[in-house]
Simulated assay, not measured.
Amino acid sequence: MLDETAKGVFTIAVTPFKPNGDVDWESVDRMVDFYIEAGATGLTILGMMGEAGKLTAEESVGIVKRVVARSSVPIVVGVSAPGFAAMKALSDAAMDIGAAGVMVAPPSSLKTDGQILTYYHNTAEVLGDAPFVLQDFPLVTNVVVPTSVILQVVEDCPTCVMLKHEDWPGLDKISALRAASDKGARRISILCGNGGLYLLEEMLRGADGAMTGFAYPEMMAQVVEAHGAGDTDRARDIFDAYMPMVRYEAQPGLGLAIRKYTLAQRGVIAHDTVRKPGGMLSAATKSEVNALAARQADKLKELGL
């Protein structure tokens, strides 16, 4: 079961599709193997970048079954939904199948701190014993969750064991949460998203690792490992080699299409299909990704990676 000690890299998995939009189950298997071989200590499926909102309920459960059966690392399942009934149904199914925990983002209808707190009180009640991740991603959800509210959720809801930190800018939030833990607040795991853009700085502020889906997940594993060994310079050198691709993949509206194209080019998934509605890459964009990948490979050789 997921708990407050979770650390490392929980890679956010894409959902592979065939050109006709059907789930590509063979690519699901290959993708799970790839992420684990690249250093993932856990996987997160059915997240925002996993196109969860485009799946049927049956497909969602099917993906959980397939990934859990294939994986040797803990699986976190995104169960965010407009209503609690759908959230509970998927959470119960995922935990019964063998997931380690679930992740919940606040709906955009929440406007006040009190509403956010009440929502997560209700979430904890509905999910029962399932450990959950609070996803803090205001750039997408349009819900700003202050540090004080996160700390109150942590105090009130023992099953909240992790924060997926994606506030932007948000480094000071990590520092504030860790300072509160030093003064006696329950310490939970903090894994960070945003495609790894600020991974090293987040680790230096007290994060426990990454929960994001950059198409080169080995970068995150290597940076976390170097940081854990106390070799900050090595961590910076590794991150710098990948930074142009991290930046390019972070483009709003195209990030997922770029990520899937890269994974297809790497042979991880068979097709770069983004299920409709979704972005498609122009020939010029693909050429730019290829150029960045080639330059990145040269930089990695210089580092002996």
Rank of each mutant, 00 (worst) to 15 (best):
M1D: 11
G8I: 01
T11I: 14
F17A: 10
F17W: 11
N20H: 13
V23D: 13
S27N: 09
D33P: 00
A38I: 01
L43T: 04
L43C: 02
T44V: 11
A52N: 14
K54S: 12
A57I: 06
S60G: 13
S60H: 06
V64T: 03
K65E: 15
P74H: 10
V76G: 05
V76S: 06
G78D: 07
F84P: 03
L90T: 08
D92V: 08
G98C: 12
A100R: 01
P106C: 13
S108L: 14
S108H: 14
G114P: 08
L117A: 08
N122R: 15
A124Q: 13
E125K: 14
D129V: 14
N142Y: 06
V143F: 09
V145D: 01
V145M: 01
S148D: 13
I150P: 00
V154C: 05
E155S: 13
K164T: 00
D167P: 02
G170I: 00
D172S: 04
I174Y: 00
I174R: 01
L177D: 00
R178P: 02
A180E: 03
S181M: 11
C192I: 01
G193C: 01
G195P: 02
G196T: 03
L197K: 12
E201H: 05
G206N: 04
G213W: 02
Y216N: 13
E218A: 07
E218C: 03
V224I: 15
E225I: 05
F239I: 05
F239Y: 14
F239P: 01
P244M: 04
M245A: 15
V246R: 00
G253Y: 06
G255Q: 05
T262K: 12
V268G: 04
A270N: 11
D272H: 10
L281G: 04
A283M: 06
K286G: 07
S287K: 15
N290M: 12
A294I: 09
E302Y: 13
